[in-house]
Design a binder for these strands. Structure first.
Lengths: 242, 242
DNA sequence: GAGTGGTCTAGACCACCCG
DNA sequence: GGGTGGTCTAGACCACTCG
């Protein structure tokens, strides 16, 4: 049943993974059904069992397959809701949702870090941070006020870059700090007078407040943000696993 | 430097993983520092290189280590904020945060699924769902109104169980549907009259609204919930990776 | 007992990075 | 060129589940 033609330059386990994914997407392998055993798959694909396992393990992480020790590997039921476990920025999310994203820079400045921000970014007292405040719109409607703080010493030239046409995470990667993970805390808060004007809502209207620390691959905190989202125009979706 | 004594009944790669974790926690391996190469570690631990890699790969997922191809494996900077990427329920979270959790059942009934709920739970028209509405408190203060809907056909005896002293997810596991992942959507909403009374807040106050679909290991949706959280007493923390 | 996944070996060659 | 991680092999034995 499952087989594949070898492709130059792509690892075998990735080819096996994609071959299995295609079988599932094409409904040639159905939810609940048992996959051939690892030994069988190894024989069919002409690889060793460890290679098959490596391909399968990616699909386990994605929740497309699940295993039962001593029993077999099975195709999971398709999830109605898509996967949202990956970190993405406003523009990436907008693209995925077919929303037209726009951004206006309200403030960009360099100043000493306040206590909370310094702590989140693992800075010394008196260290400088770059503060970039933006207003973000989806399909022409303002939805988010975003206050980002970035350690000046890590990215001293950041304010010389074009912050509208490229995302700051791109620059961070170029400067040797590829963005890897973020911890975000969510609350519901009332909009105050100033915020409500920026978002075009009434004072006291509910907003989704998000505080986020972003870490590079090596664990260095590279960005701390306060973020206020219009309650009636913005929702955030995340996937969690046990 | 790193070494270990063999333990019965625990896999070697798990022992290696924990040995490395301890070295890092004890600051004998410092952030930014390079780990010995995989070959060296294999020699030191007296195992093959693949076994070392299996141990390391868990720590990569956790963000405790990171790798650079052709260069080495490194200890990541410690993250100030703890990891919150795992799915947990109200009681597990409360325990972790040293908060006293309590729950009162407001409604428990069986009724036909409404359209949206039936869709989320992959039900046929007319299928029954169990509806359990609860009020949850932290340290004696009401914080959450929780409406859970569960497919009746999967768990016909659920309402015969003690829903206060054991969590529903425990029963789901016992009935063959271990809870594995959840997709949740978050919004900020105003409390209406009825909700505000239950939560002891003013009408119009902001609440963190959460809609969640919970899936078992095999991908079957087992629970759909509406959940209203007091904005001033509740925050939700999640970790995301790229 | 037969079949499955879980762990592990002792090698091998390749791709990448650096001095 | 030398050192690193990335991929892969062709086996082996163990632990678990089921009939």
């Amino acid at each position: 049943m499952v087989s594949f033609t070898k492709v130059e330059g792509i690892s075998r386990y990735a080819q096996i993974r994609e071959a299995l994914r295609q079988e599932i997407n094409a409904k040639r392998l159905l939810p609940g059904q048992k996959l051939p055993s690892e030994d069988e798959l190894a024989a069919q694909f002409g690889v060793s069992r460890m290679t098959v396992r490596q391909g399968i393990s990616d699909l386990l992480d994605e929740g497309l397959l699940y295993r039962k020790h001593g029993v077999g590997t099975f195709i999971a039921q398709p999830q109605i809701a898509r996967d949202h476990s990956r970190l993405s920025n406003f523009f990436e999310s907008s693209l995925a949702n077919h929303v037209e994203a726009a951004m206006r820079v309200l403030v960009s400045e360099i100043l000493p870090a306040k206590l909370k921000i310094g702590k989140a970014l693992a800075l010394e007292e008196g260290d400088l941070v770059i503060h970039i405040k933006t207003l973000r719109s989806a399909n022409g409607i303002p939805v988010t006020v975003h206050d980002a703080y970035v350690p000046y010493k890590l990215f001293p030239r950041l304010l010389k870059e074009d912050l509208v046409s490229h995302h700051i995470w791109d620059y961070m990667g170029q400067y040797g700090y590829p963005v890897k993970r973020a911890v975000q805390r969510l609350e519901a808060r009332e909009a105050d007078e100033k915020l409500s004007k920026l978002l075009g809502i009434e004072a006291g209207a509910p907003t989704l407040y998000k505080e986020r620390t972003v870490y590079a691959e090596d664990g260095t905190p590279v960005e701390f943000t306060y973020c206020y989202n219009r309650g009636d125009r913005y929702s955030l979706t995340v996937t969690l696993s046990r």
